[in-house]
Design a protein around this nucleic acid. Sequence first.
DNA 1: TGCAGCTAGGCGAACGTTCGCCTAGGGCGC
DNA 2: GCGCCCTAGGCGAACGTTCGCCTAGCTGCA
Lengths: 355, 355
Amino acid sequence: MVMAPTDPGSGRADGGRRYASIKDVAGRAGVSYQTVSKVLNGGGSVAPATFERIQRAAQEVGYVPNVLARGLVTHGTKTLGLIAADPSDHVLGRFVVAAQHEARRLGWATVVANVDPVGSDVSGCVDVLSERRVDGILMAAPQAEGDTELGARLRGRLPVVSLHHIQGLRVPLIGSDHVQTGTLAVNHLIEHGHRVIGVVSGKSGRRVTVARLAGGIQALRAAGLDGSEADRVQEGDWTISGGYAATLRLLERHPDVSALFVHNDYMAIGALRALHERGRRVPGDVAVVGCDDAPPARYTVPALSTVRVPFEDTGRIAMTQLVALVGGEPPPARSTLLPVVLVPRESCGCENRER
Amino acid sequence: MVMAPTDPGSGRADGGRRYASIKDVAGRAGVSYQTVSKVLNGGGSVAPATFERIQRAAQEVGYVPNVLARGLVTHGTKTLGLIAADPSDHVLGRFVVAAQHEARRLGWATVVANVDPVGSDVSGCVDVLSERRVDGILMAAPQAEGDTELGARLRGRLPVVSLHHIQGLRVPLIGSDHVQTGTLAVNHLIEHGHRVIGVVSGKSGRRVTVARLAGGIQALRAAGLDGSEADRVQEGDWTISGGYAATLRLLERHPDVSALFVHNDYMAIGALRALHERGRRVPGDVAVVGCDDAPPARYTVPALSTVRVPFEDTGRIAMTQLVALVGGEPPPARSTLLPVVLVPRESCGCENRER
DNA sequence: TGCAGCTAGGCGAACGTTCGCCTAGGGCGC
DNA sequence: GCGCCCTAGGCGAACGTTCGCCTAGCTGCA
């Protein structure tokens, strides 16, 4: 009698497709389906025996609640959407994992919509999520910064927390202090005595890039240098190969650079390779500082000095804010800026100060 | 009149939360809501004027279809679930992106449930997706290989295609030829004259690991070596730091190794660092071959020789298979094994043969 | 003029839930 | 022994769709 799998008509014959509904459970337990609902959601008052019977019946038919149907009446899906850039960006991956972990801890499910690397379809992702009636969206797709449609698509409808600016929409932002990142990196190079500093930047136009650039210039000015090193900047695309190519260009045009500030560690890996191929020793001939503290950074040869960005914290806090927002709390008054910290290793010329 | 945003009661006042329904559209267009449904889904016969009017009304109120409600009656959500391991594994990220891209091309939406790195909660991910009634699931979480609950949770209910074996469940598998990977790598090292070959393996027990190990032994035997190098294997955990640590252990116990077969490129990066720290030159003192052809591989110093695994193809084909399966086609008779190819660079001792 | 046939669109039911309200019956106090 | 209250559980409606069937009215042909 308990052997549901062989029970004909139970809707659970292996290989059968239809999910058991609350009504199937009710039939098996000999109660109305509404009572089943009560039991499964812990509301109402039910006799212990009935409670037990219903629980067992649910288990026997392999009942899986239908969140879709539930959402229809409750006007909420207890699901949060996460729009993420190419997850192969290690750094964003850490953010995503942390955010999801936090969501689950708070009792929310998450679904991710991944934007392809060029970001051609962020609006499409919003649609996918809206159509599924997620209760809120966490944006983590910097390549969408220039998307003009996105803001309109999101407008007012859904609580949103974002890692990056969204055109035409005021939305709580969260991230790390990119200006400080630039300042710390360049300042450290200056302290090592460098005066001719090249930059391998992120994609031009992006806020991160602009801020890290600005931070660098700020450091130069503070040191009494002119800060007009704008022509010693080469644009990369955040990838290893992009960093490699940008560094080669930079060396070609400015063979005199004695230090490199690279806007992320992946590009810095490419830079190390480019320097190696051009016969420049690091840090002897050229010192290098990256950004992010990506996992490979401490294992390159030489180990990469970098500015550590707290991705896990960012993800966690972003999700906390989103859940609060969905819960009806007012959005934070200002953007949240997490502090960053310099991690000197070998590539800047420090003596292996940290591993 | 067209200015919906200021139209009171349209349900679209900015900041308002409720989505417009098909009935709101109907009211505005002066038809029954069923007719709206017809228009929006292209079925039935409607006068061009009405069609136009409804389309406009839908746009004005900012109608977004409710896939949940639709799914309720159609018994399908046109959504595929993707259970992925830690997306910060670059290599899995590429798989995921390719799979999603293909799904979209075929007209399916995807939602991703990310498993945390330890894989503590794969079953939970299945629940999240089942509760949302996805039409099929693509599994890409090798850390779930040992999960005994997973198979039962999935049993017969949903079409599944997987990257890895699932306990207690016969499911179409897709992946690359791991045995061949091991053979190619070790064989190449043998051709370079190496006889004492150490291995930094993936997590023990995993099928990938077992297969890559087996492939290596096969190559040794074929070369007339005894293949009993099992004690020259150190287990890594697929991460850079894991590879670093395993390599240090290996060097300690077997200082005589002249070559290293490392089960993925990230661990190989760690291995390069470890070798550097122990004063071994690569490839002069120790040759290294990795697996996967991850992006950093061609930019390390020395550039990493590796066996390229076609992740994008795998993702694309896996999704194609899943969609076919969901469409009712019979599952493929055998697992799909994609071929791999050796990419010799510098770390094996070849003269910079490919970049 | 009468009727068949077609077109445009309405109508009711169903999908799987939740939720608030209703009711039958039993226990208990007086 | 009567009435009240509480408990257990039933009932109807609603959520936003789709789908099949029904019907009013027009066209066109004999």
